[in-house]
């Protein structure tokens, strides 16, 4: 097994492009997501009708928005479509009418927050102060979803590289040659798992440290525990990558498994709140290793839990590793029954 581990580490050392994919690519993606999901400096433009309540207008102007009056006779929808304004507020018998271009974008969230704050300032007794047990109301999306990014990225890259390495081993005939030596099947799979595991440990530690100290991601719990979860998740990725490679005849076919193996797991990683899913679909997550990885990361990084609270996630990841490890050892029987 030691021989296989040394070989994998040497191969990676010689293959700088693959090494870069494992180390630099996650760092680049994290940085990009930090910029995309981080604190926005955008100032939304709001146009209000002439009869907009003066007190509220004064408070609204104190928020991070640009407020001006809507011209008489101007068409609200045209102004929104032409991006002359992000929101147009008119008043009528049935209250305030707020019109925006489209639902579900971050501009709408900024405008809603500004209006809520202005409204609270006008009437303090009716103000609502939202607080959470875990996390802060003003946390950026990058901070809130950071644990998902770390889990998914660490799984994704290791899955691809281990899957492709195994297919290449079969394609080039080295696996056949390997199996004609006295090496045990368990040593081949063990060597692969540990070899890639060492690389993924380095990758995970770098990702965690970079997120924490360069991108300023807020971590509540111990960093080492987060690294441990990521390494276990990466070990699962190695095992699943090697397993999937059995059904692939070339490297391109390994890539075809991404929509089947990785993408569905991303949906159940914590991006969407599972309790709110219809038909009990959230239960599907129980069969997905990324769910346990991200659940553990959320508990450690966001809630500040210790190992005593995430033992179930760690056990499930270990169970996945063991399950696919055994399957891979059995699959090698195709090359040698012994």
């Amino acid at each position: 097994m030691k021989g296989v581990i040394i070989r994998i580490l040497r191969q990676m050392g010689n293959d700088r492009r693959t090494l870069a994919l494992m180390i630099i690519a996650p760092i680049i993606i994290l940085t990009l997501l930090y910029l995309l999901l981080g604190e926005s400096s955008y100032i939304p433009k709001i146009l209000v009708a002439k009869d907009f309540p003066a007190v509220l207008l004064t408070e609204l102007k104190k928020q991070d928005v640009e407020v001006s009056f809507l011209d008489e006779g101007a068409d609200a929808d045209t102004l929104l479509k032409d991006k002359k304004a992000d929101a147009i507020i008119t008043t009528g018998a049935d209250g305030m009418q707020i019109r925006m271009l489209e639902s579900g974008n971050s501009k709408a969230a900024l405008i809603t927050t500004a209006l809520k704050n202005a409204s609270s300032a006008v009437s303090p007794p009716s103000s609502m102060n939202l607080t959470f047990i875990y996390g802060k109301i003003d946390s950026t999306e990058f901070n809130s979803l950071g644990f998902v990014l770390l889990g998914v990225l660490s799984f994704f890259f290791v899955f691809i590289i281990s899957g492709i390495s195994f297919v290449r081993e079969r394609e080039t005939g080295t696996l056949e040659r390997l199996m004609a030596t006295p090496i045990r099947r368990i040593s081949v799979i063990g060597g692969y798992t540990v070899g890639f595991g060492i690389l993924s440990a380095v990758q995970s530690a770098l990702m965690i440290l970079y997120s924490r100290y360069v991108l300023g991601m807020e971590f509540e719990g111990p960093v080492w525990l987060a690294v441990l979860i990521m390494v276990l998740l990466a070990f699962t990725a190695v095992s699943i990558g090697a397993f999937v490679s059995i059904f692939a005849n070339n490297e391109f076919q390994v890539m075809q498994f991404i929509p089947l193996v990785v993408v569905p797991q991303m949906f159940f990683s914590g991006l969407i709140t599972l309790d709110t899913l219809p038909y009990g679909l959230g239960n599907l997550a129980r069969f997905m290793p990324i769910f346990y990885g991200c659940d553990g990361l959320e508990k450690v990084l966001i809630r500040g839990y210790g190992i005593g609270s995430i033992w179930r996630d760690l056990c499930m990841l270990l169970a996945f590793i063991l399950f696919f490890f055994v399957l891979n050892v059995l699959a090698l029987k195709k090359y040698r029954k012994l």
Partner: peptide, 11 residues
């Protein structure tokens, strides 16, 4: 084996 079956990314 008939094909070279050596690791191209090793010396």
């Amino acid at each position: 084996p008939q094909n070279d079956a050596v690791y191209s990314d090793l010396s």
